[in-house]
């Protein structure tokens, strides 16, 4: 038996909106630790890892580890029917083939339940090694989204370079080139407006903008995004999910032959 009650139901709506275009089907894993998901996009270039820790739920009952295969587009369709202020409860029986999403309005005057069919999904959990990053950039998520959107109107790939000058996002296309440099800026009124660059060594990597743009659909989840880079390794683009967890997008770089 599984019963997870999330008072801030809008978080789950935002999570689904941020992954539904990247991943078609995925297994949600439920354990004592929390509600999690690891899945790759269909071309195996990007991977998404979500964790919503059990402590973040108002009520968290998971009698035994459960893996529930869901079509993320269908799950997003159902969660779209929840109001932004609604409390969302996820319910499933052990061995059952459906999951129920219950939506309660804050005043308890409207209660809805949506039952969705589960699916069998063959998926392998990949081991993600702990990495020491050469550079970690923390910046306003809206700024990062704007940069990815702007650059994708010029080119298909972005070169992200971190030096002691700052972080540079560059692209090149048929019509010309573009470079956007963001410098460290910690003298801001609000901490969410800060740009913080921790650099051990300069690093420069090339990525497909199509995926970066897809990751920025998580922007409504968090005011800040963290971009972690190491030479010849996947970039990690992380958005915190309130106080309860994170959504991390891993993107394989483009490398010289």
């Amino acid at each position: 038996m599984l019963e997870l009650r999330l008072v801030q139901g809008s978080l789950l709506k935002k999570v689904l909106e941020s992954v539904k275009d990247l991943v078609n089907d995925a297994n949600f894993d439920c354990s004592a630790t929390g509600f999690s998901l690891q899945a790759m996009d269909s071309s195996h270039v990007a991977l998404v890892a979500l964790l919503l820790r059990s402590e973040g739920f108002e009520h968290y009952r998971c009698d035994r580890n459960l893996s529930m295969g869901m079509n993320l587009n269908n799950m997003a369709k159902m969660l779209k029917c929840a109001g932004n202020d609604d409390i969302v409860t996820i319910k499933a029986d052990d061995g059952g083939d459906t999951v129920t999403f219950m939506f309660e309005s804050p005043t308890q005057d409207k209660i809805a339940d949506f039952e969705m069919k589960l699916m069998d999904i063959d998926s392998e959990h990949l081991g993600i090694p702990e990495a020491e990053f050469q550079a970690i950039v923390r910046m306003p998520s809206a700024e990062f989204a704007r940069i990815c959107k702007d650059l994708s109107s010029i080119g298909d790939t972005v070169v992200i370079s971190v030096t002691k000058e700052g972080v540079k996002f560059s692209t090149r296309g048929d019509i010309g080139t573009a470079n956007i440099v963001c410098r460290q800026n910690t003298t801001v009124d609000k901490p969410e407006d800060a740009t913080v660059i921790e650099m051990q060594e300069p690093v420069s990597l090339t990525f497909a903008l199509r995926y970066m743009n897809s990751f920025t659909k998580a922007t409504p989840l968090s005011n800040q995004v963290t971009i972690s880079l190491s030479s010849e390794l996947p970039v990690v683009v992380e958005y915190k999910v309130a106080e309860m967890g994170y959504i991390r997008f891993y993107l394989a770089p483009k490398l010289e032959e």
Partner: peptide
């Protein structure tokens, strides 16, 4: 010439 790597070449299968 740059080539798109697969994420599977970085992370281990169980």
């Amino acid at each position: 010439m740059q080539r798109q790597k697969s994420i599977l070449s970085f992370f281990q299968k169980p």
